[in-house]
Design a protein around this nucleic acid. Structure first.
Lengths: 313, 313
DNA sequence: TTCGCCCGTGAGCAATTACTCATACCAGCG
DNA sequence: CGCTGGTATGAGTAATTGCTCACGGGCGAA
């Protein structure tokens, strides 16, 4: 660990000399007394470890405009639109970074606040691109369980990862995502460990959630939280997306019955008194995004240009 | 302007695709429909226009440690130490970026605050590396005049430059830096336009100033604010540095007489009730830095590793 | 102690990027 | 209408970077 830290230290230094001071890797090698290849490795280590954060500080007119129009059209309280990379297959590229900036902005405020987080690949990517922040005044609460169907702690539980970067007090939720029965759900929620967390979630000042699609590759299904027949039933009932497990139809109304009564996640915090920001982009999630903002499940959105355009058309 | 903006827009997009999305310039060229060379030009334009901000998000242990020791040793309220690039001749590299981060942090706070700024090459570089921030709740006031000896607006008046990036209310000071006589100074300060600004400066919550050396290449002399004989007189009187024109000796005590009675800048705000941060690094400025912190002219410092080490030795 | 594995290192090479120069284009002007 | 200065563009080339592979030293297991 100490050696590793020393290495990261060197990597940070190399990255600094490279990106900030504008040295070539040869110069860095000379200054740090290592071979050019090692310098290159240090720089690339700095990048891959996420030590190097790049942001483009220019309001690309087209994106700004799309954001404004989305705010107007759907009555959103917050909307960020990032450029689309036409070739990329990533479902988080750009959105994650933009969301991280928003989160960082809140966490840097000195007034104590409660932030609730959902789960999923997008949130995971967001948290990974957060810088280190010291903010013990804030509390971060997970909206959803961190127990995978196989009993292990789910990879996508983001509050744990967040704790690596941020010193806020964190409240994970030691629950499955979807209980086996409504009764089990009730029992779990009644636990002494859980109730304070649920109450905290209900009082969140700001919430960031991903939106899951419910197509054939629904993350909820892929990750084993629901079975194929349950997915099919949801689809048949008109479900087009889900937020922390709560499936909803094209009007943004939660599906009655099926898996929803067993969802062990906290309810989505109130849009009336807090900011609930959805992070999502891409063709597959479009029906879900559209439903969530039309139905008022969320009042904030971070998405990309292409998705924004389609939403407006 | 419109065309230029469109170009910057493209540049920002290219920069985004390059740095955030990780495309090669070939790919960017294809996606933007331009030649590879043009894509390269767009990316480099984005960099040179300062659209691309890189920060290294790792507390380099050595720097942290130096900062802590400086805080302890000199009773500072804030100290940031950045790595040194052994080969670079820049007097602002690193320090400017670190200071920009500190300033940004303050400006992002929602509670209204008053920030005072000095002048000089360092401050200029700081302001240029600030991102765009919308913060009309804050007020930014210049401590010093913006009229050069030849009557033009001085290049290094940073509050104007700041206004390009930040929407805070700004209060420049339409004064020379050093008046021709103490009487002129008094008269200038009595002006109705000036007095509110001076009062604002006195109430600043946080102040950032550069430290000028008074060696043979003193910026005050190079920029024509003082004559060679005045510089010599200051040196003879034991002056080792200046802050917004106020020359001080090695104990950090303001020089009596000479140019000081004619300095038209606002007094350095109170260290007792606010934070006054000096931004400076480099051999030449060392005597000035040492004097300023030992004499309590400032209670914060942003500097580089090499300077920090020397200060501690 | 010795063997084998693995991590880090250095060399060479392919890919990518940055720079220089010549050319083309355009606006303003005679 | 043609000229001229300035600016953008494309081509070629040098520099820089990133990748792969083979080597070597350290460490744990037998």
């Amino acid at each position: 660990m100490a050696a590793n830290d020393g290495r990261l230290d060197e990597a940070a230094r190399a990255g600094w000399l490279y990106y900030v001071a504008g040295n070539t890797q040869d110069q860095i090698a000379a200054k740090l007394g290592v071979s050019r290849q090692s310098a290159q490795r240090l720089v690339s280590l700095a990048v891959s470890e996420g030590l190097v954060k790049v942001r483009i500080d220019h309001p690309i007119a087209a994106c700004l405009d799309l954001g404004r129009r989305l705010v107007e059209r759907f009555g959103l309280a917050l909307c960020e639109v990032v450029p689309t990379d036409p070739g990329s297959t990533s479902t988080t590229l750009g959105v994650a970074q933009a969301a991280a900036v928003e989160i960082e902005k809140r966490l840097r405020r000195p007034e104590p606040a409660i932030m609730a987080l959902g789960t999923g690949r997008t949130l995971k990517a967001v948290v990974e691109s957060l810088p280190r922040i010291d903010c013990p005044q804030h509390r971060v609460v997970s909206l959803t369980g961190n127990i995978a169907p196989d009993g292990s702690a789910a990879y996508y539980n983001v509050v744990f990862t967040l704790a690596d970067h941020v010193t806020a007090r964190s409240f994970p939720m030691p629950l499955p995502v979807i209980a086996t029965s409504p009764e089990e759900r009730a029992m779990l929620h009644a636990q002494a460990m859980i109730r304070p967390t649920l109450e905290l979630a209900a009082r969140a000042d700001i919430t960031f959630v991903g939106i899951g699609d419910l197509g054939p590759e629904a993350p909820l299904f892929l990750d084993g939280f629901i079975r194929r027949d349950e997915l099919a039933a949801l689809q048949a009932a008109g479900a087009v997306g889900e937020i922390v497990g709560w499936a909803f139809d094209r009007d943004g109304a939660l599906i009655e019955g099926l898996t929803n009564p067993r969802v062990a996640s906290a309810p989505i915090p109130s849009r009336a008194r807090s900011l609930v920001v959805a992070l999502a982009k891409g063709e597959r999630k479009l029906p879900g995004i559209r439903a969530a903002i039309r139905g008022g499940l969320v009042n904030g959105l971070v998405t990309d240009e292409a998705t924004a355009r389609t939403l407006l058309s």
